[in-house]
Every structure is written in C-alpha cells, then in structure tokens.
C-alpha cells in the first residue's frame, strides 16, 4: 500500500478526508460539551445520557467482536454480569466504590485472557452458543456466592454514601470517560496494523494466516477488549441501578440489545454501533413501556436488518456516498481522472 504512493500516476492512499477531519473536530467539541453535562443538563437527562453512554459501549464492543473479528457471541452477558458482580465483591471487600467500578472491568479483562484460549477454538455457531453456555455457568457460579444470596441479589450499598446529585454526576462522568476511552481505543486499534489483520481474519482466516497474520493473538486481543468493555458496561449499569440481581445482569437480553444496536447501525462499520446505540436509546425511551411488543419489535427489526440491510443504516449510507467520518480505513484517490473511492 505504502509503495503505491511513490509510483507516478498510481492512486494516492489517504486516510483523512476534509469530512473526517471536520467530523473528528465536531466529535471532540461534542465530548468537551458533554464533559460539563451535569452542570446544565437536568437530573433526568444526566441519568438518561449515562444510559446512552453504556449502550454505546455495549454496541461498540459487540461490533468489535462480530463486525471486525467475525465472532458472533450470544454470551457477552457473561462479562456484563461479571463486571457488575466483581464491582459488588470489591466494594464489599472494602475497596472505594468508584475504584471498584473501574477495577472490575480490568479484572474481567484479565480473566478473559485464559478463557480466550478455550473459547476462540470454537468456530461460528459453536462459538456463539459456547459463549452462551459460559454465561449460564458464570451466572450459576455467581449464585453460589453467599454474598449475593442467590437470585435475591444484593445492593451496592457503599454508593449511597454519596449524595444523589453527586452520585449522578460521578456516574455520568465515569460512563462518559469509559465510553470515550473504549471508543478511542477501538479507533486506534482498527487504524493500526492490527486493525487490518483483524479484518483480514474476518474475511478469510486461512488466507490471513497464509500472509503471516497472527490469527490467534489478534483474535485474542479483540476478545479481551470486548470482554473488558462489556464488563465496564455491566459495572456502569450497576452504578446507576445500584441493585444487583444475577438474573437481570446475566440475561441474554443484553446480547439481544447489542445485536439490535449493531445490526441496525451497521455491523462492521466504526460509526454504525454509535448510530445504533442512539437509535436504540430513542426507541427505548419511546416504546419501552409497551413491554413485550417492544421486545418483539426489536427482534423483528434485527431479523429484517440481518436479511435485507446487512450493512445497517450507517453502512448503507457510507457505501452509497463513500463517506467515512472516523478514518479507520484507507481511501484511494486516483489522480487522473479524479474520482474517489473508499476501501473500508
């Protein structure tokens, strides 16, 4: 790719476009604006945005796994639940509650490292349900912990030492910080050499291995990132909900949400899951009180998108107009005649 740049008349390889520079600029501005959120947003909006940040994390992590790594997991609730559980455990062991919420995902990430040696040997559908079995097992084992009191659950009591308003702001900043960290991490990961390797593996594992891609190590990196990310989402969810009931946190419903957000936004695009998370957030705000019909609608939408709009909303827009706001790919610019194309 790099050599092509030197050849006369060969297409130029570019990563940034004026549009993507503008997009990154506005994103940074938006983040700066959001950082002062609790100062001007009411308590309701602060809470709701905290939830939105959690959804962005969940969707981005699931997308990293499925959209870039080619690993469809139906068991990410394992890490979501473990993140919340470990935060509870650490807090009851005397660790400062906000430190516990940050440490929990890191520990889950470490724990997922040996687990990946096992899980990544499963292929396709076997990996999908194999992860589900692991999630069920994690749920059962957490239930065995006397502290949790089975399905009765337990509360993160230590967090109520903070006044409601202070707690709301801290939760908001923690969620915003973790979301920014994970998304930025994902951005640099995908832009790097590893990003190209990841997508090569997704498209054809054997071919990638034949050109020297370290398949297992690369997949493991994505697996651990997604595990730690989902655990972060779980620990953040605990900070807002306070109570921990294993059944709620280890529910396969979380994976259904992740799948919905990613599919609707655009599987395998960087921006897609963020779009999907915002849409899911709006849909939830409007229809969540319709209960079961809302869940039927989510499932049906995911089904329809998987069959008829496989690139999702953002992927379709991006393909149609050659737009990429977050420059994780390469763009080819042909000098004569001038026309541009994107290779995601």
């Amino acid at each position: 790719m790099k050599g092509a740049k030197d050849c006369e008349g060969a297409p130029a390889v570019r990563r940034w476009s004026p549009l993507s520079i503008a997009a990154i600029g506005s994103l940074v501005a938006l983040l700066a604006l959001l950082a002062f959120g609790p100062a001007y947003l009411g308590s309701y909006l602060t809470d709701r945005l905290t939830t939105l940040f959690i959804y962005v994390i969940m969707a981005s992590m699931w997308n990293a796994l499925a959209g870039y790594g080619g690993l469809v997991s139906v068991g990410q609730q394992a890490f979501f639940g473990l993140g919340a559980y470990l935060a509870i455990r650490l807090s009851y062991a005397g660790v400062n509650v906000y430190l516990a919420l940050v440490l929990a995902p890191l520990i889950v990430g470490l724990f997922s490292l040996p687990l990946s040696s096992f899980a990544l040997r499963l292929r396709g559908g076997e990996f999908a349900i194999g992860m589900w079995v692991l999630a069920e097992l994690a749920h059962l084992l957490v239930n065995l912990d006397g502290l949790v009191q089975g399905e009765t659950g337990i509360s993160l009591i230590a967090i109520s030492a903070f006044a409601p308003d202070a707690r709301r702001s801290y939760n908001y900043w923690l969620a915003l910080g973790m979301m920014t960290l994970l998304v930025v991490l994902g951005f640099f990961l995908l832009r790097s050499r590893t990003g190209a390797a990841i997508q090569a593996i997704r498209d054809n594992e054997d071919a990638a291995a034949s050109v020297g891609v370290r398949v297992f190590a690369t997949k493991r990196l994505i697996f651990v990132l997604a595990a730690a990310g989902c655990a972060a989402a779980g620990s953040l969810m605990l900070s807002t909900l306070v109570s921990f009931q294993p059944k709620t946190y280890f529910s396969v419903q979380w994976t259904a949400y992740m799948l919905f957000m990613t599919l609707v936004g655009g599987l395998g695009t960087f921006e897609g899951p963020i779009v999907g998370a915002v849409l899911f957030f709006l849909v939830e705000t409007m229809f969540a009180d319709t209960g079961v019909w809302y869940l039927i609608g989510l499932g049906a939408t995911a089904l329809i998108f998987s069959l008829f709009v496989p690139r999702g909303i953002w992927g379709t827009i991006s393909d149609r107009f050659g737009i990429q706001l977050m420059p994780v790919g390469y763009r080819l610019r042909f000098r004569v005649p001038s026309n541009a194309g994107a290779t995601p």
Binding site: A256, A300, S306, L307
Partner: peptide
Amino acid sequence: ERSLRSGPLTPLLSTFGLAVVLDNSMFQ
C-alpha cells in the same frame, strides 16, 4: 435461504432475532 447467501454469520444473527420474536410473541 436468504441468510445462507449472505455469509456464515447471518444465519446466527437472523435466527437469534427470530428467537427473540418467538419467545416474546408466545409470552404475549
């Protein structure tokens, strides 16, 4: 049939969506 044409991951995504629809429809 349509899932099979769109690559190895699509059947997992579509049948999971179907499961969510079926479970909740039966609940309804």
